[in-house]
Amino acid sequence: MWKWLHPYAKAEKSYTLSGKLMPWFLAVALPTFIVGMIWGLAFAPADYQQGDSFRIIYIHVPAAMMAMGAYSTMAIAAFIGLVWQIRLAEMTVAATAPIGAVYTFIALFTGAAWGKPMWGAWWVWDARLTSELILLFVYLGIIALYNAFSDKVLAGRAASILTLVGVINLPIIHFSVVWWNTLHQGATITKFDQPSMATDMLIPLLIMIVSFAAFLGFMVLYRFRNEILQRESHRPWVIALVQQSSSSVNKRG
């Protein structure tokens, strides 16, 4: 496997490969997004308790899940990058963090917008919302650390270390917040818990999860390519790429 993987530790190879993969991710993300959204917003039956406000679930849950998914991606990439000293993996960490942060923000915001009609308040110290908020803090810390270094190789390594520290800490944080919450809130029912969903509610949710995951993949690849281009901007292959693109623009113009 290493023999097969090794060429992709070269920046140019991974740039081309990720460029080839990108359209496929987009081809999954866009149709599933449109179908899932229309299905979820217009065709899924209203919840018998929460009425139509439950339709926020079709972005809240996928965003929350993929925020965690993005963090796992970062953790795996950080581990690979630190253990095998692969810089491209460290670039993946840097490329993924902003997307994870945006997903976490979406999960938080939709959670609040859902909580307002359900709980009567924009913000309740619900265990899930609280740990999402902390996850957002962790994401922002990683991004801030990455941006603080001017040497991007060091920045990638520092961000990777912080990601790994975070991955040990996040389960503890989640566990502690859940426990703290049960102690302080007693009998409040978490509205996000859907013990058993009807199938015609569940299918659009699954479609949306697929869509969010594919979009995450697409954006990671796009940002990953940006990172490569930026760091390799003095290499001949990048210069050739730039010349090619500018000449094609000139022909059209």
């Binding site: 902390i134 803090f137 810390g141 503890i172 566990f175």
Partner: peptide
């Protein structure tokens, strides 16, 4: 910014 979230538990 880095440390405070991690010390929440």
């Amino acid at each position: 910014l880095i440390m405070l979230p991690l010390s929440i538990p």
